[in-house]
Write a protein that binds this DNA or RNA. Structure first.
Length: 197
DNA sequence: TCTAGGATCGGCT
DNA sequence: GCCGATCCTAGAT
């Protein structure tokens, strides 16, 4: 496939909800010694920082884990949930505004053989239909926390090949797995598209 | 130090 | 549809 341009820093330096919407349809490219896997994003969730009870930085929490979210936009925030699954996020806005977009799902558009090998014998549809699975497919771990997604030499990058989902293909739903966040659990910050690309 | 709980997944009923 | 795995993180002591 041809080589689509990198998303520039200013793409991420907007409101988190704008970035989340525009991330749908963009490409995530992951380079490792065993090869490259590229996916097109079809599902994301916005996390709105210190005023969002579902966000790791709610109330201004700043710890070693969340340090990346407090920094520059356009970097990867990777953490471990339930002790065994990784989650990939994209830091938005800018320094001092610890907000991010959680990457929940996509479809593999390049490196399908490697993706299958990493995920074991599972059906095509279940390759990347969840944050933990997606990280396994892209071989993303906490070692990738803080990576600059705008830097051409990074092993993890976000690309724009010009594709965009039409507004009528984007659905806004409540976020998943954040019941503990009270009313915020029902905020429609989960953006889903149908995965037929 | 110690304790409680989690931005999930896959297997089982 | 329900439930357990599994261990890191954060906050309390």
């Amino acid at each position: 496939m041809s080589k689509p341009p990198l998303l520039a820093r200013d793409f991420y330096q907007r409101t988190t909800e704008e970035v989340a919407r525009d991330l749908l349809g963009k490409l995530v490219s992951s380079d490792h010694p065993d090869g490259t896997v590229v996916i097109r994003l079809t599902e994301v969730e916005a996390y709105l920082g210190v005023d969002d009870p579902a966000c790791h930085t709610f109330g201004g929490r700043r710890t070693r884990r969340t340090e990346t979210m407090w920094g520059e936009a356009g970097r990867a925030y990777v953490y471990l949930v339930y002790g065994l699954h990784h989650c990939l996020n994209v830091v938005t806005v800018g320094p001092g505004r610890p907000e991010a977009v959680l990457v929940r799902g996509g479809v593999v558009v390049d490196g399908i053989e490697l993706a299958r090998a990493r995920r074991g014998s599972v059906g095509e549809g279940s390759l990347t239909d969840g944050p933990g699975k997606l990280c396994q497919t892209l071989a993303v771990t906490t070692a990738d926390d803080g990576i600059d997604l705008c830097f051409p030499g990074s092993s993890l990058r976000l690309l724009d090949d010009g594709f965009r989902f039409a507004d009528d293909r984007v659905r806004r739903l409540p976020r998943v797995g954040v019941d503990y966040a009270g009313e915020a659990a029902s905020w429609p910050l989960r953006l889903v598209t149908d995965s037929k690309v």
